[in-house]
Every structure is written in C-alpha cells, then in structure tokens.
C-alpha cells in the first residue's frame, strides 16, 4: 500500500535531550577506528581550537536514528519497519558535536516516493543544542523493500 502523501512536510516535536559524554565519543571513535586524540584528550582538542573533545563525523547517527523512530513507528504513516533499510545518509555539520552538548532533534518528513515497488521516505533530522544552536543536519532515506509492490501491480 502506498504511504500517506499528506505526511510530506510534517515534523515531529523535539526529542528529549541527549547529553554527549566524553566516554561515548571515545567509545564511538574506537568502534569506527578513528585514532585522533581530538576524540579522546580534552587538551588535544583545546590545542586544535575546540572547547572539549569532538565526535567523529558520523556520531550524529546516535541521535538522528533514535529520533527517526517516531516516524518509523508512527502507526498513522504505516511504514512496515520490519522491511526498512537505510538507503542513504548525509551529515552536514554546522559545527562538530562536542562533549557536554545537550542535543535535541526535530524530525521532518521531506519527501515520500515509491520506486520499483519500494516505499522511500526522505527524513531530515535537525540537531541543535537545547539553547537552539544549530549543530548538525542529518538527512536519511528509509526504504521499505517491496511494500509498494501491490499498488504497482494493481
């Protein structure tokens, strides 16, 4: 079944704040093999011009994926989340995420398409601090494999 097009342009209320810790940044850097001391040592980060250790370029997925769940799990949209795969992902950083940030995310539905039997939802997660400073824009497409097929065949 095709997804409800009226969801295009919809946004969800801001997520609860996520507090970025030095330890989580270190853990994430270890997991993706980033070796820079700027992820680990506050003094090294200061020497590079940052107030505290900064997160690797893809760290924002921790908060954006969690925030996107409101959409994926929204029964009104009716996305079959058991068939959802990640189509693409882009991060635009207004500044690096850093330890101590308290991040809130607003999730927006930018587009809904169906292509080759797949429902494709373009989602934008606007990540900012609690004080309203823009930090990262994370864009994802979520692809529900085969869910639009019945419609196409009809």
């Amino acid at each position: 079944m095709a997804l409800d097009q009226s969801f295009i342009g919809r946004s969800y209320p801001p997520s609860p704040a996520y507090e970025v810790s030095r330890e989580k940044i270190r853990e994430f850097a270890d997991a993706v093999g980033e070796r820079s001391e700027i992820h680990r040592d506050p003094e090294a980060a200061k020497a590079a011009g940052y107030p505290d250790v900064i997160a690797p370029p893809t760290f924002a997925i921790l908060v954006s994926m969690k925030a996107n769940e409101v959409l994926v799990m929204d029964p009104e949209l009716g996305l079959d989340y058991t068939r959802v795969v990640h189509g693409d992902q882009t991060f635009a950083h207004h500044r690096p995420i850093q330890a101590g940030d308290r991040l809130v995310v607003t999730t927006h539905v930018d587009a809904i398409n169906s292509r080759m039997g797949n429902d494709i939802v373009s989602v934008r997660a606007e990540i900012s601090t609690e004080d309203g400073e823009q930090v990262t824009t994370a864009r994802s497409t979520l692809v529900a494999r085969g869910t639009a097929a019945t419609e196409d065949q009809a």
């Binding site: 700027i38 900064i54 370029p57 991060f91 635009a92 950083h93 864009r139």
Partner: peptide
C-alpha cells in the same frame, strides 16, 4: 583534524 569534515554523505 576530524572537525574539518563539514559534510559527509
């Protein structure tokens, strides 16, 4: 400097 990456997709 990992902070040099302003966009990645």
């Amino acid at each position: 400097d990992p902070g040099a990456v302003v966009e990645y997709g």
